[in-house]
Simulated assay, not measured.
Amino acid sequence: MELEDQWWKGQLAADIYQALRYKELKLPSYKGQSPQLNLRRYFADLIAITSNRFRLCPAARHLAVYLLDLFMDRYDVTVQQLHMVSLSCLLLASKFEEREDHVPKLETLNTLGSMSSMNLVLTKQGLLHMELLLLETFSWNLYLPTAAHFIDYYLSIAVLDGDLHDGWPMASLEKTKSYMAKYADYFLEVSLQDHIFLCFAPSLVAAACVAASRLILHLSPSWAPQLQRLTGYAWENLMPCVEKLLIAHDSDVKEASKQKCQQQQQQGQTVLHSSGQLATVTQYLQLPSMQYPQKAPQAGLAANHRSVSYVSHSTSSLQGPSGPQHCDTQTIATSLDPKPGISNRAYPVSMHYSYPAPCFDR
């Protein structure tokens, strides 16, 4: 979207925010009925890796994945065609969100390691045909707010002077704000990895990213009155989305800990297991007035904490689905037929799970 740089700091911030909130009410419906839904994570990763390679802004990355989700939801797309669709979504989103000199060039795209591993060569004519099909699908309207469009506005007051860390005054407000920005960005990328987050409004997902970050950073109250007034969401509204974000965080922490133990064993080192007591998520998902046990504040992000899986991937290591990878773009427009309705898939959620939340070094 053509928004002023750092619009959330300007005099029109409130007006722009209200315009985004109004626009999200008119977003296209998403049913989660694509037959290729099990491949969605792979192609979301492909978009994210390519986006990181060209240092595109989060808004472009999130818009690209959202375009892909909507397109897959409306058409029965083959695996081979999905490669072209994914990269076309990214190009279209970058043209809408980025400056012209930041938009990836065709020649550079074809030199990526992931392109050679997929045996895929993009052509100018093929991309133009695909972009035209996408634009016609969305009625030439790419003004589609995502969580990435709201997050900076919420981060402007995500950490307040009166906040407590583990029941104590914060040792460094600026350092805490830095950690908050990193965790909010992490949770924002987590929200890209599962289509279940599309059942929430983008503004709510962004607010939940801030709320989850405050829980992980042990800030209290968990949801300050100022944040409720700014976002328009009460703590109870955010809990379902926050829970799903924390489930993903729990999984990432456990996987990182497992990999660290394996590396230490391979190096012949003694693996020391922590005897610290794990806290259940239900203990963290309390009312905003909750206070944490008082203990000395800690600094630094945990060494074994990792970001979402694709952040550490290289473009050369991304492996595509099995099957031929050639894409005949001339036949895409005629082969993409709307599908009959398919029932939505259930998403199992359990309120009883635990995670260590190692957000500070010990």
Rank of each mutant, 00 (worst) to 15 (best):
W235T: 13
S178E: 14
A147T: 08
P225N: 12
E236C: 03
G162Q: 11
H195K: 04
K182N: 04
L144R: 03
Q125C: 00
D152Y: 05
Y233Q: 02
A171K: 01
V190P: 02
P225H: 07
A234E: 07
M130N: 04
F187K: 02
L204M: 15
L246H: 11
L134G: 02
L133Y: 03
A248H: 11
R214E: 03
G167H: 06
L188V: 12
I151C: 02
A208C: 14
L132D: 13
Q125H: 04
T231R: 01
L217E: 11
M130C: 12
F187M: 12
H249R: 09
A206K: 04
L133T: 07
D152F: 06
I216Y: 10
W235R: 15
A256T: 01
A171Q: 05
L188A: 10
Q125G: 02
L127V: 15
Q125S: 04
A184C: 14
G167S: 11
V159Q: 02
D185T: 15
L245M: 11
A206M: 08
T146Y: 03
H165C: 09
E131S: 14
V210R: 05
I247Y: 05
M239W: 04
L188K: 11
Q226H: 09
I196H: 02
T137Q: 05
R214I: 15
A224D: 14
W168C: 15
D185C: 13
L135H: 09
P202K: 06
A211R: 14
F150C: 06
A208K: 02
D250Q: 11
H218T: 12
L192V: 12
L127D: 01
I247K: 12
L155R: 05
F197A: 02
L227G: 03
S172P: 02
K175R: 10
E236R: 06
L230F: 04
S257R: 02
V190N: 06
D161S: 07
S191V: 09
M239S: 07
L227R: 02
C209G: 05
L155M: 11
T146H: 00
W223E: 00
D161R: 03
D185Q: 13
L135C: 12
L132M: 10
L192W: 09
W140E: 08
V190D: 04
L133C: 01
L173F: 13
W235C: 13
S191A: 15
Q228R: 08
W168V: 14
L219S: 12
K254C: 07
D161Y: 03
L142Y: 13
K244Y: 03
D161H: 05
S220L: 05
V190Y: 08
